[in-house]
């Protein structure tokens, strides 16, 4: 089992969700996050005042998936999230040791 985590631009969430659904992903967790990468620190003008933006709003997506489908899901996700501009985000995959479905107590791949 794998945990796929992605940081993407907020407006790309709908596209990514659609792409993942096409790849049979049944559930995902979305969080509103803020941070910065290499494009760190740009200035914006809002209501006449210029201000420094340290943290840029992003969306974090987490998907639990079987090991054999992880690569395809990552590809689909990257494809859907890309705009080609700075700040498109990152995707990483981690190993999942144990998984339990709370309602039924099912464990391992059955709980996916």
């Amino acid at each position: 089992m794998r945990l796929v985590t992605a940081i993407i631009k907020p407006f790309k969430l709908e596209d990514v969700k659609t792409a993942l659904e096409l790849h049979g992903v049944e559930g995902l967790t979305v969080s509103e996050v803020q941070g910065y990468g290499r494009q760190r620190g740009h200035t914006e003008v809002y209501r006449g005042a210029e201000y420094q933006v340290d943290f840029v709003p992003k969306v974090k997506i987490e998907v639990l998936i079987s090991a054999e489908r992880a690569a395809a899901v990552v590809d689909a996700l990257v494809e859907a999230a890309r705009t080609g501009q700075i700040g498109d985000g990152k995707v990483w995959v981690t190993d999942v040791e144990q998984l339990v479905r709370v309602r039924t107590g099912e464990r391992g791949p059955d709980a996916l």
């Binding site: 907020p10 509103e32 996050v33 803020q34 914006e44 003008v45 809002y46 709003p57």
Partner: peptide, 18 residues
Amino acid sequence: WSPWRAHVIADLVGHVTA
């Protein structure tokens, strides 16, 4: 209305204002 959401919308408004 999280600071996150406020920021995302203000960003859009800023672009349109300009």
